[in-house]
Amino acid sequence: MSLLPASKLVLKDRTGQTLERCEDGDLFHDYVLGQYTPLAPHTNKLRSVNLLYRSFAECGVSSEGTHLVHHVRNALGPFRTVWGIKTLAGKITGWEFYFYDFARTHADLSISRMCGVLAPLLTVDCAVSRELPWHMWSVEFSPQHLQKKATSAVDIYIDMRSYKAHGSTLAFENVYTFHDSRKDIDAVLHRLRSSVHFDDARDNLGALIPPWLFRCGRMCVANKRRADGLYFSRIATPAAQRFVAERAFPESVVRFFAEHRGELDHLLWDVGFDFVGDTEPLVITKASIYGSF
């Protein structure tokens, strides 16, 4: 698999943003690195990573962020990394890269190797050396991390749980369950009705699972320390555009979809949000959108 020729990376749109265009042999993945067939012919249309670049620009870390993407892609090869943009109250709080290894061979994706790879650009606090049957791990970073002013944490995902690594210790973090939203709806409802943050008699399930996200690829219900979460995989571009608008992503991110109308119709996206409702009616807090490079 060849790396993207450098010449392809310097194309810019009218905002001056770096634009990457799809090549014939591109692969497309959802946020659990499941491969999908693009919805429309893709050659020369935009890769999803361009939205990530737009979010870096929004936070004033265009060159640091883009450099990190290229660096990771050089180390792992293309189409192996999932990215996420995180927002809270309409502001980007940071990003996350996810590294999947369902075969759990942990060869070139071993956490220690990748921490070494990331080291010149991100300081990562993880010294877990035990053999663990993880299928995924992720590293979170913010503009401060990209400027090496802070240390990034690592989350390790084993079966349905995640643990946060602090040095060599691991603290339990979240529980995730994945569902076919249509066939497995009873399990989804059970998971939501047993959440301390959702009250069936109080909260509007239609706002939590909007009909335009319901027919997604797979739904994920998460229980977290201070919130619960819902994720919707493989949604088409119009739904992704609606999601970033309704969840009040920064204007420049929302605008990205309108600016590149017709160049994104081949893509599927993944989105998610946290919700809190333990003390008062449910509110949606963090929201995120995912793609891959």
Binding site: V32, F102, A103, R104, T105, H106, A107, S110, S129, E131, L132, P133, H135, I158, D159, M160, T177, F178, H179, D180, K183, D184, A187
Partner: peptide, 20 residues
């Protein structure tokens, strides 16, 4: 369908052990 990894109980594969 809840888990992405249905053999959660299984420990590391041989290749994984070699990698470590």
């Amino acid at each position: 369908t809840m888990s992405l990894v249905r053999d959660a109980g299984e420990k590391r594969s041989s290749a994984g052990k070699v990698a470590v």
